[in-house]
Amino acid sequence: MALVKANPPGIPAVGDGKPTPDGPASGLPPLIETGPSVEDLLAALDAEESTTRRSAARALATHPEAAMALCDRVEIERSPSVRVVLFTTLIRLQSPEIAARLAGLLRSEDVALRNGAIEALQEMPAAVAPSLRALLADPDSDVRLFAVNILGALCHESAPEWLVEVIASEPHVNVCAAAVDALAEVGRPEAVPALQALRARFPDEPFMTFAIDTAVRRIEGR
């Protein structure tokens, strides 16, 4: 028969009772099995093999003291898969300090890195809130736009209010457009007058008129 029953190394069959210890590692490094120290894991973040770096990044999710080292690593990490795991760990460890470091990545020219940071920040509402004010007032319109993108997906009850503030004062058309887009989902009826006022600020922009109409319809639910 073509089907063979085999337990891969270390997989106990059902009913075996206690798990068997791992055999010689055939791919994964022995890091986690032996309960490595934080120092070992931090060193492994710079390892040659991406598998080792991912494994270390994952294991550091229970070590808040590693946060800044993880932030350092994510800035220079080249492997997309390792980056993904680093961001997941930073989401687990979320803190205002981590959020502030990730906010710095909004200025990166590396689109994938920047978007990874935006997504991670969207997952840490309480931690990112203190950084958001400054980001929304940043001189660089791209940074303000990314801040609005974060705000739009944030599970934070002040988000709708802040978005209204953005459309009331923001000079850049694309930043306003992003805020209108976000309000289409989270906006409350109180946002409608501000949206109508925005229409008057960009009368020659067909997209803005369309987006405002859509957002108002979504908010009013008709």
Binding site: F207, A211, A215
Partner: peptide, 8 residues
């Protein structure tokens, strides 16, 4: 990723 953009 923007809903208003896609609809536009």
């Amino acid at each position: 990723d923007g809903i208003t953009m896609r609809l536009f």
